[in-house]
């Protein structure tokens, strides 16, 4: 845990927002669905937060909610990854030559 306070937080937020905007603005339409799936995978980073929170759980209720947090987050990350890879495999030029 690092201290991220006040304006530092705001600056991180602002710069990240511009980064996301810039990165996706050059994506061709054909990749929009894989891209949506890929960005869906990336917010699977919520798993890190879920692990930390679950690790600090003290009561049974906290453990139950924490358990759900970790399971859902892992589902987000793994499902997002597999779905994206499956879609992107179809755009793989090597596979295309193999089929033709």
């Amino acid at each position: 845990m690092i201290e991220i306070g006040g304006f530092t937080a705001l600056y991180i937020f602002m710069l990240s927002a511009f980064t996301g905007y810039e990165v996706i603005s050059r994506v061709p339409v054909i990749l929009h669905t894989p891209m949506m799936s890929g960005s869906n995978f990336i917010h699977g980073i919520v798993l890190v937060g879920a692990i930390v929170v679950m690790g600090s759980a003290e009561t049974v209720l906290e453990q139950v909610i924490g358990f759900f947090a970790v399971a859902l987050a892992a589902g987000n990350a793994v499902g997002g990854y597999v779905a994206t890879v499956r879609m992107l495999e179809m755009f793989n030029p090597k596979d295309k030559k193999g089929e033709a």
């Binding site: 937080a9 990240s16 996301g20 905007y21 949506m36």
Partner: peptide, 26 residues
């Protein structure tokens, strides 16, 4: 990203915000 702020986790803040803005643009 918001929960990243709560936990003081920069990776969550950055990844979450990037997806937030990219998703909005999409």
């Amino acid at each position: 990203a918001f929960e990243g702020f709560v936990l003081g986790n920069a990776a969550m803040i950055i990844a979450g915000t990037v997806v937030g803005s990219a998703g909005t643009l999409l």
